[in-house]
Design a binder for these strands. Structure first.
Lengths: 201, 201, 201, 201
DNA sequence: TTCTAATCGAGACGGTACGTCACGTCTTACG
DNA sequence: CGTAAGACGTGACGTACCGTCTCGATTAGAA
């Protein structure tokens, strides 16, 4: 006995993809993660919460990880975009502080932590996560660094990737271990890793 | 008629805890994680592999996380103990290199990554992981730093915890993202974070 | 979150098969068929109604058809056993009337009709149905006929199987087409098929 | 440039019903039933096989049962029409043999068995099946019998419907149980059910 | 000739049931 | 008692069809 009784629901849109369903899924996934944690983030729960059929989710997303990636990519660009337009030492500092704030205080930051975690458990997640998030983001960061170096804004001791990991790693590690970022940590990291030694007092 | 023994594989031992069963569980968990990843690490699979009843696992371990913690604690102490006896700048460097090697090249290192990951998904895991592993270890590291400072071996710019996170964070982050630690990264981190500025050339 | 909340249910019996669960499944299947028809006879519905896990059903029955067969075999023997002990013309007549009554008026008769039906749709059902029900039953009927012939009680014109089908076929066909068995039909069939021609008036 | 025709398989015909689609559905249903059994006879499979949209099926047929009925009615009339024009004992015998052949050896006979079966599972099917097939057919058979009686061709002991069921029942029952009709069965049934007793030797 | 209406293929949609897997709890029988 | 074995209720998995719906293209017959 399929969809016999229907008082009035969202009339779906026919043979083209239903944008309302897409957004409902994204928000349901976000909300469930924030409210009840990754353990409650099952496809069935997302479908239930979004008022959507499971098949609709499987039709458009290969796994729940891709749902999270969709929201993360959008949120990251909105909340802490990489300053690729004429980056300065100051804008790089702002970027890292923004990143730290996102991870520590923004509910959406849990999505990034959950994806890092899930990537440890599942190779497919690791692949998607690198290709769709870490890779593109790191490319922008390299670009940012290169321009800042050329403009004489910064002068790192390490290669670009190592520099970024040395900056970002401690922030991520603090978030993963559930501790807050102590004041001064980011600024000190920037000073010792990006500032030419001669500028040390 | 002495050696009538064993169509039964391992005759169980009666009313005291069976050490053979304990070890079989630990090794089965380790092996499964190494061979098939965290996804294959189910209680049923561990029991199957160890030739043990599920109930025996549930009797002694509250969750599979505790099994992993048991092996991790033992392996960490064996593979890269914190140099708390008269630590020098050199022994600290050795400790960090040991840590990096454990994470990158030792199969047992996967256990640590898996626990960091699982702690993101489940608050109970996070609690156990901190209380049984991260906390004690960090206490030793603080001790190590304090002694090294007092001995004039190092002179960090940041507070002890921040210093350790700044050193350890990049290593962990590299491992979590599946990339190798570039040569020079650890040494540079030590130099800029632990060495008094006057000793910079 | 598995079986956390349990006020008080049927305490199951451990590592031996739970007879209460077995009976609950059998009765649930019977009731669902009688009340809502074969369309409502899903494994999920049976499990729900019986208060039993789906897995428990799959553990013991390869398909819902075998559940129905279990009940049918038991009911048939109880409601209209084949008169194999010294059958007479009269007891054979009673047997056929009993069969007709079972098909037409007994709710359990629906099970037989449903199995005949399902056997048309699925070869596996056909196989089980023949091996577990039709075959054994027919063997008894052949036995009944043979003894009755030897005793001079009946004297059929057709071979045993053909005789039984000629007697049983019209009854089953009436039931399948949802019409009642008209009075006199069975007696006339017996007269013309089992009685020697010379005894026709 | 005349025969530029058809990368498009079947260009549909506009605002009137597409006869080609109708036939494609009928044949697809028949073929699927014959090749893979009733279990494979889903609306989606029919649509797929016929190269037709599901909606086109739902527009013209209330259910897959009606599709089968459409083919059955046509095939029955073609393969074994009821001899209503001056029926004789001989033409009635021929009709029953034709019916038996249809059920046992004609692939289209599976359709009738499938409908008898489905009628047990679903009341709607039962209703349609009686109104569109069994009822009209039985009316013709009654007519046939009445004429044959009036002409002195036959002289049944039972009422017309009972007579027909007594003749047809064994044939159907044999088919339903997947056994062949033994030679002599039909002729004997006719003899004992339709022939006046005085004509028995 | 242009407009209107019905039909067609395609396929997205909210659902239900499928059969499988692992969960954590339990009971049994053995040593 | 601890153990191996495994049945149990629960619930998520990913798949198949259900019957409804909306689309854009196609093709009549009416205006």
């Amino acid at each position: 006995m399929p969809a016999t009784s229907s008082p009035r629901r969202r009339p779906h849109s026919g043979s083209r993809r239903d944008e309302a369903a897409r957004l409902a899924v994204l928000h349901a996934a976000d909300d469930l993660l924030a409210e009840h944690g990754f353990g409650a983030l099952t496809i069935e729960a997302i479908a239930r919460r979004a008022g959507v059929a499971k098949q609709t989710i499987y039709r458009w997303w290969p796994s729940k990880v891709e749902i999270l990636l969709d929201t993360l990519i959008e949120d990251s660009e909105k909340r802490f975009p990489v300053p690729v337009e004429k980056p300065t030492a100051e804008s790089i500092r702002g970027y890292l502080h923004g990143f730290a704030r996102f991870l520590s205080h923004d509910p959406a930051g849990k999505v990034l932590l959950a994806l890092i975690a899930e990537a440890q458990h599942d190779p497919g997640t690791a692949k998607s996560f690198h290709e769709r998030y870490l890779g593109p983001r790191r490319a922008q960061e390299r670009d940012m660094l290169a321009q800042a170096i050329e403009a004489g804004e910064v002068s790192p001791e390490l290669a670009p990737d190592a520099t970024m990991d040395a900056l970002v790693g401690p922030i991520v590690y603090r978030a993963l271990t559930g501790t807050s970022i102590p004041p001064g940590l980011i600024d000190t990291l920037i000073e010792v890793l990006l500032t030419p030694r001669s500028k040390h007092p």
